[in-house]
């Protein structure tokens, strides 16, 4: 089990962070990922495998003041 943006989910067949991002419907160019409070740069998404217990945040910019 991993946590993605506060929601629990199974790793299933996802091999790495890039696959997770894409499986959630996000364009990797428009989001930033943080795993267990550490930022994973865009170029490294593919290299970061998923591990049980990972807490992942996928964030982007929205309108704000």
């Amino acid at each position: 089990m991993i946590k993605v943006n506060g929601e629990e989910m199974e790793i299933g067949s996802l091999a790495n962070l890039k696959e997770l991002v894409e499986s959630q419907g996000y364009n990797p160019q428009l989001v930033v990922c943080e795993v267990n409070l550490e930022i994973v740069s865009r170029e490294k998404l593919q290299d970061r495998g998923l591990e049980e217990g990972d807490e992942i945040e996928i964030v982007t910019f929205m309108q704000g003041g």
Partner: peptide, 12 residues
Amino acid sequence: TVALRRANQGGV
């Protein structure tokens, strides 16, 4: 200015 938030599923 912009704000940083969790991405919405399905994309915005």
